[in-house]
């Protein structure tokens, strides 16, 4: 007998036919206090990072200056990177760069989503569209997005438009390809069922094909966002006057390795943050796919 533990949203849990229904505590009944096993795991993770930082700090403060003062500059102690990060944060400078990069990423990524999802559905659904557009996609796709940087600088100059263009090139294909794949992986029997129930073509596309492709579309969106975040940095390194990529490139000119490292860490954190947010959204929208999950 299966016992469901998914008494959530006020929906009843599901007994199998004829089974005695057993009351299973849902989320609210779970103990709220400190989860020690979990805490220990997290602390364990922190400990290794702390050890690395300590080692690094000692290395760049005590060992490197004695070997060669230049090494000490090239590998700054983490505490100095942290302090300069704090200063940049307080002055508002850091936030300005974060916002500039985020704006470019979100703009490019959402515009691409609006184009690539319908296009992917069309390519996946109508073989004719695939025959026509497929070869073009296959020709452009293998070109690494950063190979577009030189021509895009000539086209758009330096700044927002060029950065957004590069991100769009990079985010486009993961979203497109995953959408196409999603459409093609819909179970044919669901299409049959929909036709049997009288679905006209347009509703079939919207109510069955789009939904059926949604899990893969989300995968594409997530990969696309990751790629976007990498590319915004690449684009800003060479063609921007703001943004995190610009910030670390600018710091290079002044040998401010503390800012460079601080910037690198923040770029990494922002990437993780965006991925996390998108996963949350996905979990909420695709309950029917993932099932109701209480633990991560």
């Amino acid at each position: 007998m299966k016992i469901s533990t998914t008494a959530y949203n006020g929906r009843p849990s599901v007994p199998s036919e004829g089974a005695v229904q057993i009351q299973v505590p849902g989320r609210s009944a779970r103990p709220r206090g400190v989860n020690f096993a979990n805490l220990e795991k997290r602390l364990g993770g922190l400990a290794s990072i702390a050890a690395l930082m300590g080692f690094w700090e000692a290395l760049s403060r005590l060992v490197l200056p004695r070997l060669d003062p230049q090494f000490a500059i090239l590998v700054p102690p983490p505490s100095r990177a942290f302090m300069s990060g704090l200063r940049a944060l307080l002055s508002g400078e850091l936030l300005r760069h974060i916002l500039a990069s985020s704006e470019r990423v979100l703009l490019a990524w959402s515009v691409v989503a609006v184009i690539a999802i319908p296009l992917g559905i069309a390519i996946g659904w109508w073989p004719r569209v695939n025959r026509f557009l497929g070869p073009i996609v296959e020709m452009v796709r293998p070109i690494p997005p950063i190979a577009w940087i030189p021509i895009s600088i000539l086209w758009f100059g330096i700044g927002m438009t060029q950065n957004v263009f590069i991100i769009m090139i990079g985010a486009f294909f993961p979203i497109l390809i995953n959408t196409v794949h999603g459409v093609r992986s819909i179970e044919p029997i669901l299409i049959r069922a929909a036709l049997n129930l009288g679905a006209p073509p347009w509703k079939l596309l919207r109510k069955v094909v789009l939904y059926g492709a949604l899990p893969n579309i989300f995968t594409g969106l997530r990969i696309g966002l990751g790629v976007s975040w990498m590319l915004v940095v690449a684009a800003e390194l060479v063609a921007a006057t703001s943004g995190l990529g610009f910030m670390i490139e600018d710091a290079r000119n002044f040998l401010r390795t503390d800012i460079i490292f601080m910037g690198m860490v923040i770029i990494g954190c922002m990437g993780i943050l965006m991925e996390r947010i998108l996963r949350r959204v996905e979990r909420a929208l695709l309950v029917w796919y993932h099932g109701a999950q209480h633990h991560e």
């Binding site: 049959r192 069922a193 129930l197 009288g198 679905a199 939904y211 029917w288």
Partner: peptide, 24 residues
């Protein structure tokens, strides 16, 4: 048609599944 594999639309609730044909 009623299929051996049920062929319910997983993205719709029970109510929405039953309503599907009527909505069409």
């Amino acid at each position: 048609m009623v299929f051996q594999e049920f062929a319910l639309f997983p993205w719709f609730t029970v109510r929405e599944n039953v309503a599907f044909g009527l909505e069409m």
